[in-house]
Amino acid sequence: MSDIPLIAHFFFSLVATVGFGIFFNSPIQALAPAGITGGLGWCIYILLMKFSSSAIFANFVAAMFVSWVSEYLARKMKHPAILFVIPGIIPLVPGLGLYNTMLYLVQGDYNLAISTGADTFFISGAIALGVLVITSLARTLFLINLRKKMPIKIEKE
């Protein structure tokens, strides 16, 4: 992973994100922003892995970034945020960890299967938590802004 330049990481994750956007029938005008979001999220993951070597932390921060950009794009482009979030987190999904867990189970190496499975589970949880934190924050801020705009009517008896 360290031998590949960061721009190649960005390009390949952009292509994967756009591919999944097409697979999920995203509108054509949402494909390029979703691809850039997924590419930047993957680059953040790569950079954080170089400096922190914690896959859980790197996935959490990258998922938060993807979710934050997706919420922003949803407001600007008048599309649901899920059109950008789901394809954007696809490069972060620990597919190799899932595959290796199943491989170790089939081979009978249960200690390695449990270790790899636990790491994969925590990485998946970090991705879900990163998206959840930003989505909940965006929803809360939206409701606060909505209440500020509504006049409060006090009824007199």
Rank of each mutant, 00 (worst) to 15 (best):
P151F: 11
M102R: 01
A138W: 00
K156H: 12
W68C: 12
G97C: 08
I44P: 00
F10A: 10
F20K: 06
F65P: 02
S70R: 01
I28A: 15
G35I: 02
G95C: 06
L31D: 00
L47E: 02
G19D: 01
N59H: 06
G19R: 03
K76S: 07
H9C: 04
Y45S: 09
M150K: 14
T135R: 08
T101F: 00
G38M: 04
I90E: 07
A62E: 10
F51P: 02
I56V: 12
F57D: 11
A34H: 02
I46Q: 14
V18I: 12
A34K: 05
S53K: 10
I144F: 10
K148A: 13
I152G: 04
A74N: 07
F60P: 03
G39D: 09
P91R: 08
I127A: 07
L31M: 12
C43D: 14
L98A: 12
K156Y: 14
V106R: 13
L112V: 04
I114N: 13
F122S: 10
I152F: 08
E157C: 11
G19P: 01
P80Y: 14
T116N: 12
G130E: 09
G41A: 11
G97V: 01
V15E: 08
G88R: 07
L31K: 04
I46D: 08
L6S: 11
N111S: 15
G97Y: 02
G38H: 04
T140W: 07
V18A: 09
L146A: 14
I86F: 08
F65R: 06
G19S: 11
G117P: 02
S13W: 01
M64D: 11
I144S: 09
T116E: 10
G35A: 10
Y99H: 09
S115L: 13
G125T: 04
L96G: 13
L48S: 06
G95F: 05
V131H: 00
T116H: 05
A8T: 14
G97T: 00
L141V: 11
S26Y: 04
H79D: 14
K148D: 15
A32P: 02
L132C: 13
T120E: 03
A58R: 00
P27F: 04
V15L: 09
L143W: 14
T135Y: 07
F60S: 12
S136R: 14
Y99W: 03
E71A: 02
I4H: 08
A63P: 01
